Computed example of a mutant assay.
Amino acid sequence: MSAVVAETSTKAPATLHDSISDALIEQIKQDGFGVLRGALSPEEVAEVNAEAVRLCRGDLGAVGIGREGDSAPVVGEDISDEDVLRRYLCIHMPHKVSQILADQLAQPRIVEVLTKVIGPNVKAMQSMLFMKSEGKPGQAWHQDEFFIPTRDRSLTATWIALDDATIENGCLWVLPGSHRRGVIYPDRDQDDPRFDCSIEAYDFPYRDEDAVPVEVPAGSAVIFNGYLLHRSLQNSGKHGFRRALANHYMSAESLLPWRKEERGHVAKWDYRDVVLVAGEDPYAYKGLEDVARPHVRPDGEGGCDR
């Protein structure tokens, strides 16, 4: 098990970029991550947080437990909004039932960054809405590419803070430059109480002491490569929620061998429940699928969709 990272850090804080500059793009390419402050306005942050309440209350339709599980329990009107949110750690694919969250997949400032990092043609395949209330666990070291395999190393996440993200409430920690080799590191089960029950990446040439906390104000977007090693720790409970909206993107030129039930020849695996957010889709002739459903992460299950 990796050594404990204290909830303090001597590392320099992550650089916050106020514009979509060459410096931001270069940092994403070299360090594997960069932060765009003000990617969402305060009004947009408030709109997404209000939508999260409606989603958790079931106002937008039933949300399953697990990708094919039963519907989440009905929430009574006498329960406060905060207590409704505290029921959940993460809801996957909320853009499937929320137009507000679907619109955030193609948020113009973020798409502008993506086209500079990925290329002119960009598609999205996943959204995840994290509530992370007081005492909720983080997620152990992992790489998003482990969960969403791509062919061309173009997988890119945008992690949008819906509250000020701090060390105390469980912000992201990253290992700068850990994406460069393009290697998926070994994984193992872990039972560390600081983390949910997802796998832990290990045997990589970095120390916990090399990690940098990414403390950012609400509305900031942390944009990072799919091979970047990252994790988060528990919300200490001192300052309320650490909500975030995480979306995943890749080059539209690349096939996506993900969650395919009837896979056929390996060269043809291509998940088609995607949203084009920029440019053209070279595989538009295949049509689109509508297979993913919004769902609550079951107790004891962590990580992105496997």
Results as ranks from 00 to 15, higher is better:
207 R>D: 13
165 A>Y: 00
270 D>S: 14
23 A>I: 02
294 P>A: 08
239 H>T: 14
18 D>V: 04
10 T>L: 11
119 G>A: 05
206 Y>E: 00
38 G>E: 08
81 D>Y: 01
195 F>S: 01
283 Y>N: 09
127 S>M: 03
153 R>N: 14
277 V>S: 05
111 V>K: 08
25 I>K: 04
160 I>R: 00
77 E>S: 12
80 S>W: 10
303 G>T: 07
30 Q>P: 00
225 N>M: 02
242 R>A: 04
182 G>W: 08
100 I>W: 00
162 L>N: 10
102 A>P: 01
270 D>V: 04
47 E>A: 13
143 Q>V: 03
22 D>T: 06
26 E>G: 02
189 D>T: 03
94 P>I: 07
170 G>V: 00
233 L>P: 02
172 L>Y: 02
211 A>W: 06
108 P>W: 02
303 G>P: 06
190 Q>E: 10
280 E>R: 15
162 L>F: 08
138 G>W: 11
33 F>Y: 12
158 T>Q: 10
129 L>G: 00
225 N>Q: 14
104 Q>P: 01
138 G>V: 11
72 A>E: 10
223 I>R: 11
51 E>S: 13
236 S>V: 05
3 A>T: 11
96 K>V: 09
73 P>I: 12
222 V>I: 15
271 Y>S: 11
284 A>R: 06
271 Y>K: 11
199 I>W: 05
87 R>D: 11
214 V>N: 07
250 M>G: 01
163 D>V: 09
82 E>R: 14
274 V>M: 15
145 E>M: 11
127 S>R: 02
3 A>H: 11
249 Y>L: 04
183 V>Y: 05
278 A>C: 09
